[in-house]
Each structure stands twice: as structure tokens, then as C-alpha cells.
Amino acid sequence: MLMDFLQVGLYGVVLGSILTLGAIGVSLIYGILRFAHFAHGDLMALGAYFALSLVVGLGFPVWASAPFAIVAAALAAIAIDQIVYRRLRRVEPVILLISSFGIAIALRSIIQLVWGPHNQVYVKGIQMPWRVGDLIVKPDHVWIVLGAVVLVIALHLFLTRTKTGKAMRAMSDNMDLALVSGIPAERVIMATWAVGGGLAAVAGIFLAMDTRLHPVMGWSVLLPVFAAAILGGIGRPYGAIAGGMVIGMAMELSTMIIDPTYKPAVAFGLMVLMLIVRPQGLFKGNA
């Protein structure tokens, strides 16, 4: 029983790592542009498929294709922002929300067109798991968790040590003051998309390693990603880390009690609970 619990908890940490990387991007974008980016799940999927092209087309190992996928997804995010969202910035944020829903659908169509509608995987065959006592640990799971930890640390350093990172926090804190201080908003917004898109690519690759690639994979994971961001207090990237872990853990642990198909419902339930009890998220911020 305890072993089961630990085993499922391990899956929870893996899922939590994936959700965290997605939720950080959602939170950063919300903090600066003030809208819920509904295309984020599909951006994750796009990143995963970019990596697939290198794995299948050029025979790269997954880890080596990740940097290219990160850059490609970051560029895609910046391009979408420049071509579409930027023109809608002066309008009410709800219009951006609808626009991003449309982008989500469009990205999914592009994925279907380019890579096909079927399930795909990076590496065929079954990975030999390691045994730690009675625990079964897949090497991929270790890479996912380690990768997430490294990226979160890198993001922390970026946000606290670099000028651009601090400007992102400043804009999220107080947009008007950032503007009158002369912070170049559009440049910082581009950086935000680059970071959000890059992290989304990694989250997508990890999700594909853990499960499989499918055009709807991004849309399916959107709800837990947003639940994580809301749990952490949307707009606060650090909260997203805790939110991602809680949601990931709750979703996996719930499978010990209820039908696993309803995992998203667990994320939804926690999110709703949070909205009732504490809409500002787990960590009260400056509001």
C-alpha cells in the first residue's frame, strides 16, 4: 500500500513537473499582458512536434533536439504575438482571449496538416525501468523531473539577475510605472513570449516522452495547466511551481480512488475549490 502510494506519488511529481513548466508561461503572460492565453497548450504540442521532426527526420536523440524545439517554439510564439496579438493589445483583454482560442484551434490544424492526425512516439519500444527497492523508475521520468528543476532554477536566475528578467517582473507588478520609467514594453513582451514559448516547448516534449504525441495533446492538458496557474495565483510565476506540483500530485493520487479518465476533473475540482475559497491563489501577493 505504502509502495503503491510512493509509486503513484512519483508519477505525480513527473506530471507536476510538466504542468509547472506550462503554468509558468501562462502566469508570466497573464502577468504582463493580462489575458489567459488559451493557445498555450497547443504551443506545448507544437514544441513537442518540432522535436519530433528532428528525432524522426535527422535521427537526433530527444535531448539534442530539445534546444532546437525551444528556439522554434519561442520564435513561433513571438511571431503569433507580432502578427496577431500585438494588433489587439489596445483593445479589451477579452478579445485577446477569444483570439488566442482561435490560435489554439489553428495551431492544432497546422500540427495535423504537417505531422498527421495519428498517435506518434519519439522512441519506439519499451524503456527498461530501473528498480529502486520496490519502486519502478523509468529513466525518462528522471530526466523530466531533473529537466524541470534545472529550468526552474534558470528561470529564477533570469528573473532576479538579468535586466530583462527584472523588467518582466516590473511590468507584471505595475505596467504604468514601467512605461513612465522608460522600460521598452514591446521588447520585454517579446522576451516574455520567448521564455513562455521555450518553456512550453520543453513541457510539450516532456509530456510526449511521458505519454505520446497527438494533435489534441495540448488542448487536453490546458485545463490542468490553468488549474496549476490559478492555484499558484495567476500572474505569479513562482506560485505556478507550487500549483503545478499540487495539481500533478492530486491528479495522479486520485487514480488510486477514482477512474483515471476523470483525472482532469480532479484538476478542475481543485481549481473550482480555489476559486471559491481563495481566488487570489495559494500565496497572497501584493493585491
Binding site: A36, P93, L223, Y262, F268, V272
Partner: peptide, 13 residues
């Protein structure tokens, strides 16, 4: 925004 996210959730469920 929260309503939007909640409606995505309920439709999925």
C-alpha cells in the same frame, strides 16, 4: 478569464 477557464473545464468533464 476565470469563467472562460471554468467553462473549458466543465465542457471537458
Amino acid at each position: 478569464d476565470y469563467l472562460a477557464i471554468a467553462t473549458i473545464g466543465i465542457a471537458e468533464i
